[in-house]
Simulated assay, not measured.
Amino acid sequence: MPEFDLAFSSSLTDDAGAFKLLELPPDLCKLIEARLEASDPLRLCIKGHSGDDAVLCTDENTYSIRSVALSNSVLVVTPSDTDTVVISDQVNEILELTPAVPKLQKLTTLCENPPEEEEEASDAEIARGLRDQRILDVHGALRPIAPAFLSSILESILNLLVSQSMSPQSVPAEELAATLADESEISRTVSSQVMAWFGEVSSDGKWKMDIGLGILRQYKGQLLKKWKSAVGDTFENSVSLPLLSGNYLASSDMQLTYFPCSASPVDPTSRFTDLFLTRPRWKADEIVPFLSDIAVSTKERDKLLLKYGRATTDSQGVWYTKK
């Protein structure tokens, strides 16, 4: 077994704390290994507002960072030209990463006050947040779109599809954007983003429409009848309650009331307080959609239900009440 002499680095005092050990969760470890094999660099970024806990972000996901003390110290050593190993630093903790829900609740405030620090979310999660909260990027400036204006755009799109006999599954995106600009004075910058919010544009420039909730955001009362009226006879058969999951409450006689998950508090304690003030008793399949944005997985969601709710079962299934 080889033997080495140990020596302390001449800059040990100055370099103390310069090294950190990071424990990678399995999914992130596999991603890094795959990107290394493909010679495709992976960007890792640590973000955090002053006073908040820092998070680590990839292009797609966000991870919380937690410091865990090590029972045994770990020495950071480097070889030298001789048979001497130089001790450069001592590590007494490990940084543990766990998947985290991105903090996107401040996006709407960015429209008026650009931040000095980055949002605590990955680029992909920020993009999804801007889409879900209907915030436009107009020449680099963030602008929330008024619900009434958005509904007007969507209704104009539906009317054009009907009048020009376009298939909602294969709409020429450029042609639609040009027509909206000419006939309705809706800029291409706006219409292109609205199309991305409510469907997908393929590489050949065809838009596959998926308009569900968007038309209904301006309505605060009962929804189903207004929804069918707004989309017209041509699209009435496309009306489906699953499209509204997490955005409505249904009464015993199936009257629907607009109740968007996005308007609820993001803190789990406040979210459950809000939900149980709205309804003291929830069926399991009704409360689950209102937790999707505060839990990173079904396992974490079930943990939240166990922590804040009390489950009971009857002939109608599982119900949750406040614990």
Rank of each mutant, 00 (worst) to 15 (best):
C57M: 08
V201C: 06
D204S: 13
V194F: 03
E93T: 10
C29L: 12
D83R: 14
K208T: 11
V201P: 02
D253G: 07
L241A: 10
E96I: 09
S315Q: 04
F272G: 04
K106W: 10
P260A: 06
V171L: 05
K208G: 10
L6H: 06
T321S: 12
T108N: 15
P25S: 02
R271T: 07
S50Y: 08
S64V: 11
P172K: 09
E300A: 13
L244F: 14
Q164M: 13
M209Y: 05
P99T: 03
A34I: 05
E183R: 15
E96W: 09
P280L: 06
S264I: 12
A177T: 05
V296L: 08
P99S: 00
D204V: 08
T189I: 10
K323R: 12
L176C: 02
V190G: 00
A34W: 01
I135L: 08
K206A: 10
S262V: 12
F235R: 00
V231H: 01
K307F: 02
L224W: 09
D274M: 14
T98G: 03
D27G: 09
A177H: 01
S270F: 06
T321G: 03
S122V: 05
T189S: 07
V318G: 00
P99Q: 05
T321R: 04
M195V: 02
L180F: 00
L160I: 14
L56W: 03
E236P: 04
N113C: 11
P2R: 09
L306D: 15
E117C: 12
L75I: 08
K206H: 09
T58R: 01
K208V: 08
I186N: 01
E96V: 15
T13E: 14
K303L: 12
L150F: 03
G48R: 04
E33G: 04
M254W: 12
D293A: 10
P289M: 06
P242D: 07
D253L: 09
Q90P: 03
R281G: 04
D52A: 08
L244N: 03
S156Y: 00
A7C: 13
A177I: 08
Q316Y: 06
E174I: 12
L304F: 02
V162M: 03
A284H: 13
L150R: 04
G48M: 01
A141S: 14
K226D: 07
R143I: 12
S67A: 15
I157D: 00
D89I: 06
I157N: 00
A263D: 15
A100K: 02
N61K: 15
P260S: 07
L142K: 07
Q133L: 11
F235Y: 14
F198T: 00
P144S: 09
C29S: 13
L305Q: 02
L249H: 00
R134Q: 09
E183S: 11
P144Q: 01
S184N: 10
D253N: 11
T84R: 14
L136M: 10
P99A: 05
E119K: 03
T82D: 12
L110E: 02
V318W: 02
I94M: 10
P260E: 01
S165H: 06
V91R: 05
R66Q: 15
D204Q: 12
S152L: 13
R188M: 09
